[in-house]
């Protein structure tokens, strides 16, 4: 379980996160929803070690993640798929995947590599093509596949639906849900598109101006009309 306790982050005088606490249980998808600038991406980047929190802590199964470098956080089992279908465009599909989890033994990596190709058959077909020749949906799959190569216990997904066709978004999110349930992963999913996120998530928190304004089961939040009007704008 990923546990975040009282986390605050500041960029100079601007406080991006205030005292955020939440839990991401294994085998479930937890959605973080909120408007633009609510601090969702900051939360993800802080968890991955790219941003240092001013206060608070994050632990994975009791091991502290706070204050560690990104390359150590990923070794501890927390893998981030950053916003914008982040791959290395100049490398081939195969090389992008090889990049993930480079510290693991050759045999372990080979088996994960095969699993990823099973999961995303389209990547197997394109393995020797450069990542920048892929379509948006394929690149998002590659980005997730790269994150899975490190055999994470916890997967952080930052806006995977951004700029993708609705059908592809649904496919990808369904896959993420299956992944969480079948591989017992703790998945934290950041989405601006609340409807889509709440459809696959088990539970959700709503962020506004860096603070958690509500948390609960996905169904509860989806049916909370006031909240939808106030923070989610639909």
């Amino acid at each position: 379980m990923l546990k975040i306790d009282g986390m605050s982050v500041s960029y100079g005088p601007v406080q991006a996160l205030r005292d955020v606490s939440l839990e991401v249980p294994r085998g479930e998808v937890t959605a973080v929803i909120g408007a633009n600038g609510a601090g969702k991406s900051t939360l993800m980047r802080t968890l991955a070690g790219l941003v240092r929190p001013a206060a608070g802590s994050a632990t994975l199964d009791g091991h502290s993640l706070t204050g560690r470098k990104p390359e150590d956080v990923v070794r501890m089992g927390v893998s981030l798929v950053p916003e914008g279908r982040s791959t290395v465009p100049e490398l081939t599909v195969d090389e992008n995947l090889r990049l993930g989890g480079m510290w693991r033994s050759k045999a372990e990596r080979a088996s994960t590599h095969a699993e990823v190709y099973d999961m995303f058959p389209v990547l197997g077909d394109r393995r020797s093509m450069r990542a920048d020749t892929l379509s948006g949906g394929e690149r998002q799959q590659l980005a997730i596949g790269r994150a899975l190569m490190s055999a994470p216990e916890c997967l952080l997904l930052d806006e995977p639906s951004l700029g993708l066709a609705p059908l592809i978004v649904t496919q990808i999110l369904e896959l993420v849900k299956r992944l969480a349930e079948e591989s017992n992963l703790a998945v934290l999913l950041v989405e601006q598109n609340a409807v889509t996120a709440l459809r696959v998530a088990h539970s959700a928190v709503v962020l506004n101006l860096g603070q958690v304004v509500m948390s609960g089961s996905a169904a509860d939040i989806a049916s909370h009309e006031e909240l939808r009007h106030a923070y989610l704008g639909y």
Binding site: A48, L50, K69, P70, E71, V74, R75, S79, L80, P82, S86, T87, V88, P89, E90, L91, E95, L99, G100, G101, M102, W103, R146, A147, M149, S150
Partner: peptide, 16 residues
Amino acid sequence: RATAFNPEVARLSGVR
């Protein structure tokens, strides 16, 4: 090569 082209993704992949 990954570090040259996209250091952030390289770091997130565990590259020192």
